[in-house]
Design a protein around this nucleic acid. Sequence first.
DNA 1: TCTTTATAGTTACATGTGAAACCAATTGCA
DNA 2: TGCAATTGGTTTCACATGTAACTATAAAGA
Lengths: 154, 154
Amino acid sequence: MVTPRKRTPPGIQHAPLELEHFLPYRLSILSNTISQGIADDYQQRYDLSMTEWRVMAVLARFEGLSAREVADRTAMDKVAVSRALARLVESGRVSRHMHDDDKRRSVLDLTEAGWAIHDVVAPMARAREAAVLEKLSEEEQVWLGRILDRLQDR
Amino acid sequence: MVTPRKRTPPGIQHAPLELEHFLPYRLSILSNTISQGIADDYQQRYDLSMTEWRVMAVLARFEGLSAREVADRTAMDKVAVSRALARLVESGRVSRHMHDDDKRRSVLDLTEAGWAIHDVVAPMARAREAAVLEKLSEEEQVWLGRILDRLQDR
DNA sequence: TCTTTATAGTTACATGTGAAACCAATTGCA
DNA sequence: TGCAATTGGTTTCACATGTAACTATAAAGA
């Protein structure tokens, strides 16, 4: 039997966090649940990690990005991006060329094979998102969007 | 210069995700930003990892939990909990006893040293949460709570 | 009882990850 | 120009993490 802490040692107030109402904790659980759910759809099937998929998703949206730009857009660490790209290029899903004017920079694009995977995975990801949003009323969906906007800018 | 993809190869519709409006992506960024912010407050100062802090937080809230129960309450993997506990016991922040009736089970509690850390870190965590919520109006805060409730139950 | 099955927890292995060091190309500026 | 500082990107190292295998105890069923 588990007893939620009600009394504290004499004279001392501990005030433990109530995790189930603690915003950072709740967000973390929710976010992990959703992202992992999406990853389950493609991970084994395409031997594609979550970071690799994220890279592919931004390359689908923006052509010819550099690795640095991919890192910015995905909010991923540049090392993680470098490694994901190494695998994606190796497996023929992304092409990498040298930038004409700046030889340090790479120019990245999805290949045909990359697009083929994208065109299967993107709809699945969208479906997962829709399934989550379905739990909310129209009104709640609007508020959620607004709230995320507010929380996101610093 | 980066050109957002507008046209697709002739005859093919790719429909890339717009990450900046994609809920799972936005949640992930937000959640990581907030949790990392809190972790920055205690990580170096107490040589305490995020998983260790989470374990401490539930042990502050509920006395005498088993490792299994800690895992359930924190939504962490049991291996992660086992490792966090090993460090916490080692560093004298958590005490571990054997359950009277079931010798497999451990009975976990914060020690004095554990409570001392808790009593510093918990208020900092709360302050971080408050700083996040401050960005929202009263009304938005209420909606957010409601929305998280809805999204969380399966 | 005896045997099977389930549960609590740890260990081992393989992989993922971030920080810092590193190399190469570019830019800023004296 | 030429040299220092910056930037794009990769590699190295140390550590975190998840999966599966494993040990020990308990519960269930014949």
